[in-house]
């Protein structure tokens, strides 16, 4: 073993929010989902939210397993349906802070309809989308964010479809907070997630992540560490940029930052207004 025994104190500082009896988790070596989850747990602690009222909802896929590792009320729903499930939770008990933690395939492909409608309604929830550009769990198939001409298990000759630009999709649908970071920008991601958690309305944070086992391997992009180095060289922070301009091409620049941070009445704001009017008080 290592040269000198290391003194191991009782617990990893973030253990209290982890179901550590379920670690090590299922994600591959070099995958960024664990880092995104790590930043999320840090953000949760810094947010000061009452943790017993925070609920994590995940869909199906690699990132979908995240809910199972967080020691809070957590739901692992069917593929693409985390957001409507969370909508029900949130409206049933407005004390709950619902967070959807899922992947690009789950949220944007099969779950795309729910995603755009939840953003449109501006129901208070935070959506964290770990985007590794493909369906990892099922073996690296092409997805709605796979860059054009990229190779995957189901686009072996190159992907002939334009991908979604997630910040643009979220912003166009009505999200009040839109940010994108990579799994390298851990400090900024943690701060952004705290902002998103405390933001009233539909907040969206995209986290670009390596997928060493499938997408990165099939496109000769190297190991997880190579992707993280790639993020260091090729990402550029441009806060407030028009999300229209943040497309990602295969191997191209990745614009990160907080693009949208606006105020808009939430679904429950309108409900309260209606309730007040119904009770005859001047609204």
């Amino acid at each position: 073993m290592s040269q000198r025994p290391t003194v191991v104190p009782p617990k990893h500082p973030r253990e209290s929010l982890l179901r550590e009896e379920r670690l090590p988790h299922i994600w591959c070596s070099g995958c960024g989902i664990g880092t995104a989850l790590n930043c999320f747990i840090g953000a949760l602690e810094k947010s000061g939210l009452p943790l017993d009222k925070v609920v994590i909802v995940s869909g199906i896929g690699c990132t979908g397993r995240a809910a199972g590792y967080i020691r809070l009320d957590s739901f692992h729903t069917t593929h693409g349906r985390a957001i409507p499930f969370a909508t029900g939770l949130r409206l049933a008990n407005p004390e709950l802070k619902v967070v959807i933690f899922s992947g690009d395939g789950d949220l944007i492909a099969i779950g795309g309809n729910h995603f755009i409608h939840a953003a449109r309604r501006n129901i208070d929830m935070t959506v964290v989308c770990v985007n590794n550009f493909n369906y990892g769990m099922t073996g690296g198939q092409v997805g709605p964010t796979t860059p054009a001409m990229a190779k995957t298990a189901t686009s072996p000759y190159g992907n002939s479809e334009h991908p979604f630009n997630l910040p643009y999709l979220a912003a166009a649908s009505g999200a009040v907070y839109v940010a994108r970071w990579t799994t390298l920008h851990v400090r900024r991601l943690e701060r952004s997630l705290t902002e998103a958690l405390l933001k009233e309305g539909f907040s969206f944070v995209e986290v670009i992540s390596p997928c060493p086992t499938y997408f990165d391997r099939m496109n000769r992009l190297g190991e997880g560490l190579d992707m993280m180095k790639f993020y260091r060289e090729s990402s550029e922070i441009v806060h407030g940029l028009d999300p229209r301009k943040v497309d990602i091409d295969l191997g191209g620049k990745i614009i990160v930052g907080k693009f949208i941070d606006i105020e808009k009445p939430t679904y429950l704001d309108f409900q309260r207004e209606i309730q007040a009017r119904m009770e005859g008080e001047p609204s």
Binding site: G88, R90, L91, N113, H117
Partner: peptide, 27 residues
């Protein structure tokens, strides 16, 4: 709204069913 309850029209029946499940777990 008259009995302090929630009515929400979802974007499709799949969303409706899931919202119901979520609401049940919301108590």
């Amino acid at each position: 709204p008259r009995v302090g309850g929630v009515y929400i029209q979802m974007e499709d029946e799949i969303a409706s069913m899931n919202a119901v499940l979520g609401a049940s777990w919301g108590g």
